[in-house]
């Protein structure tokens, strides 16, 4: 009863759009697969990196991977304890966590390459890393920016008025530094600061975080000051 299996009856040029009705011999392409079929393929992948790369293959794959929550399903499959306890976790923090997990496991899996270089004449006690860049400082009068990939020096920023920095942060345009009673702003491509706050409004600042357009400064007395970077004024104080 076996039918003759003449699989390549015609060329593979024509039937791109034929869905389930396509004949096996007439060149069904991968683009003829429907959502269900693709979902079954994606659910066989057990690596988030493969899924992430699949999502960039074409827009319909991207849509399916997003809407079908295959990423999340795989995350729960690999981390059963996470199910339920944090079901509302946003996609963004979920991916942050995922990237960190992958980072940690790749470090613990095999050998790591360690690069070491002299960045400051005095010991630098703080560094921040973002989008392939490392900013180092605290300990002397200067902040230095490095490429995380090549360890190359990229730029430096002078701390004005012989003050001592206690914390700093940066984004693609600006560097923001904190001394005990002031904060300073640098443009990423200039060594001299373009703005220093007028002191007096806070004392004993000990830490800061910066998310354009606001900078939040935590002080030793337990107060947090929120500054607007553009109006350069304190917009709120939290106790």
């Amino acid at each position: 009863m076996e039918a003759s299996s003449s699989r390549s009856r015609s060329g593979s040029t024509t039937q791109k759009r034929c869905r389930a009705v396509g004949a096996a011999g007439s060149g069904l392409t991968v683009q003829a697969l429907n959502d269900d079929a693709l979902r079954s393929v994606f659910s066989c992948l057990d690596d988030h990196f493969d899924l992430a790369r699949c999502s960039a293959v074409c827009s319909s794959w991207n849509r399916i991977i997003k809407t079908a929550d295959v990423m999340r399903d795989l995350y729960y499959k690999r981390n059963p304890q996470a199910r339920g306890s944090s079901s509302d976790i946003s996609m963004k923090s979920y991916f942050e966590e995922l990237a960190m997990d992958e980072h940690v496991s790749s470090l613990s899996r095999g050998s790591a390459e360690v690069y070491q270089w002299s960045g400051h004449p005095l010991r630098a006690t703080l560094c921040r890393m973002k989008s392939g860049l490392i900013l180092t400082g605290v300990g002397d009068k200067i902040l230095r920016l490095w490429s995380a990939e090549s360890c190359k020096f990229m730029n430096e920023y002078n701390v004005p008025n012989a003050k001592t920095l206690v914390d700093f942060d940066f984004d693609e345009n600006k560097v923001v530094g904190l001394t005990s009673s002031q904060f300073c702003i640098w443009r990423r491509n200039e060594p001299r600061s373009i703005f220093q706050s007028g002191g007096a409004s806070f004392h004993h600042g000990s830490c800061m975080s910066y998310a354009d357009p606001e900078v939040v400064i935590g002080c030793e007395d337990g107060r947090a000051f929120v500054y607007d970077m553009y109006s350069r004024s304190c917009s709120s104080i939290f106790r």
Binding site: R7, S12, R19, A20, G22, A23, A24, G25, S26, G27, L28, T29, V30, A32, L33, N34, D36, A37, S40, V41, F42, S43, C44, L45
Partner: peptide, 28 residues
């Protein structure tokens, strides 16, 4: 590959579980 894709579609249409996962795994 064209046969593989036809098989995936057929396995889904006919709901043959083992064949679905066999072919999906091959593509994966």
């Amino acid at each position: 590959q064209s046969v593989l894709y036809s098989l995936i579609m057929a396995a889904h249409n006919l709901e043959i579980e083992g064949l679905q996962s066999l072919v999906a795994k091959k593509v994966a």
